[in-house]
């Protein structure tokens, strides 16, 4: 096995997904198969290879520091599941 159910549960926590015990089992099997497959990359010696982050090599895309009118709070909240006083409302966060 490349990955345990415990690992999968940890990753699900990071990704904020909840999995039923059955889903966890299925997910572990599918992920294990994928990880087994991608292992083939280790056939290649890549020690001296520079990683590619962008397919087209470019640098330095900028904008100037000029204000563009904001879309405003009505637009911001247009799709909000829950809004109060111009703010997005979420379940209470305890600090």
């Amino acid at each position: 096995m490349k990955i345990s159910e415990q690992d999968v549960a940890y990753v699900a926590g990071l990704a904020r997904l909840s999995l039923t015990p059955e889903e966890l089992k299925t997910m572990t099997g599918k992920m294990d198969a994928m990880l087994g497959y991608v292992d083939k990359l280790n056939e290649l010696d890549t020690d001296a290879i520079v990683p590619t982050a962008h397919a087209v090599p470019m640098a330095n895309a900028f904008r100037g520091d000029q204000v563009i009118p904001s879309s405003g709070s009505a637009a911001a909240l247009a799709n909000a599941p829950q809004g109060t006083d111009g703010c997005f409302q979420v379940p209470r966060v305890i600090e």
Binding site: L17, S18, A76, N79, A80, P81, F88, V90, P91, R92
Partner: peptide, 18 residues
């Protein structure tokens, strides 16, 4: 939080996310 369909059964923030 900002758009889309929220599912929440009255639990905390992490429950809402999940």
């Amino acid at each position: 939080v900002r758009f889309g369909v929220r599912h929440s059964s009255g639990g905390g923030l992490i429950d809402m996310y999940q």
